[in-house]
Amino acid sequence: MEPFVLQKVENGCELFYIKSWMNQNAGLTAGFTSRLGGVSKSEFGSLNCGLHVNDIHEDVVRNREKLAEALRVGLDQCTYAEQVHGNEVQIITREHAGAGIDSRERAIQSKDAFITNEPGLFLHALFADCVPLLFYDPVQNAIGLAHAGWKGTVLQIAKKTVEAMSLHYGTAADDVLAAIGPSIRDCCYEVDEHVISRIRQSMDELQIRNEQEDGGSPIYADKGNGKYNLSLQQMNRQIMIKAGILPSRIEMSSLCTSCRTDLFFSHRKEGGKTGRMAAWIGLYE
């Protein structure tokens, strides 16, 4: 069953919620935006949440306001970052509230993963094919969010996020619920030998096999001529398992951003000129 459930909110935003988590804890909100229900025009139509794609600034801020309204929070409770395809984790505290909501200069700089245990803070990260990774520790009431393109994946950002939650909040990995959100899937994600060599290096380091023992699809498939279809979803799932998260606690979306440009922005499918979705997670006060 698809863990990210589409729902149209009263203000018009169409959002994918992780309903199973939210049903377990009414104080939690977590999910992923679609491209629908905003005010942006043309290739950014319509719920573009990215300030860095040359959309009209005021339209993007209004879209972020609409998302906050849909979540029933103030925009000044939200955080946004300048992501760099790295694996550094930022601890989010009250002092970060409102970071980057209307300005790239005031965003959290050069970070791709975010953790907090403070209610009233709502973490956001931006995507247009890369993989959203969401983490929820119901025991310590801590949350995490990470942005994993292929570079962040081979840098094991999923493992780094779990380790940071353990260090700072006492999270036990086998208590963690994890979700892998809508992103470009292996059906559409073709990469070259350079990328696969980095993937293999990370797999060797973590002792991850290409063929999945539980019958899941392989991490990559050789197409010949130095080209491969790559599943960043399966790779991140295996990294989560190696970090100690139980396989039964990992939800994985079946939605491909490249296949479904009616619902999502896709950097690859749309030739680089497109908007950004936002993944979010937060605990209500």
Rank of each mutant, 00 (worst) to 15 (best):
E2W: 03
P3A: 10
P3N: 09
G12H: 03
L15A: 05
Y17F: 15
W21I: 08
M22R: 02
Q24C: 05
G27L: 05
T29Y: 08
A30Q: 05
A30C: 14
G38Q: 00
G38S: 03
S40C: 13
K41D: 09
F44G: 01
S46P: 12
L47G: 02
N48H: 03
N48P: 02
C49I: 02
G50F: 02
H52D: 14
V60W: 03
V61Y: 00
R62S: 11
R64V: 02
K66Y: 08
A70R: 00
R72L: 13
V73I: 15
G74N: 13
G74R: 07
D76G: 11
D76M: 11
Q77S: 15
T79S: 08
N87R: 14
E88K: 15
V89E: 10
V89F: 07
A97D: 08
I101Q: 09
E105I: 14
E105Q: 14
I108G: 05
A113K: 08
E118M: 10
P119H: 08
D129C: 13
D129E: 06
P138E: 03
P138S: 10
V139Q: 09
L145Y: 01
G149W: 00
V154L: 07
M165T: 01
Y169T: 06
T171A: 13
D174T: 05
V176E: 12
V176F: 08
I180A: 02
C187M: 11
E190F: 09
E193P: 05
E193S: 14
H194Q: 15
I196K: 06
S197L: 09
Q201F: 12
D204I: 04
I208L: 11
R209Q: 15
R209A: 14
G215R: 10
G215Y: 11
G216L: 09
P218I: 05
Y228G: 01
L230D: 08
M235D: 07
N236R: 06
R237W: 01
Q238L: 09
Q238N: 15
Q238V: 09
I239A: 00
I241C: 09
I241F: 07
I241H: 07
K242L: 10
K242W: 02
K242F: 01
G244E: 06
P247E: 07
P247K: 07
S248M: 09
I250N: 04
I250V: 08
E251R: 07
S258V: 03
C259G: 00
R260N: 15
R260Q: 14
D262E: 11
L263E: 07
H267W: 09
G271L: 00
T274A: 09
T274W: 10
G275M: 12
M277W: 00
W280R: 04
I281D: 06
L283C: 10
L283A: 06
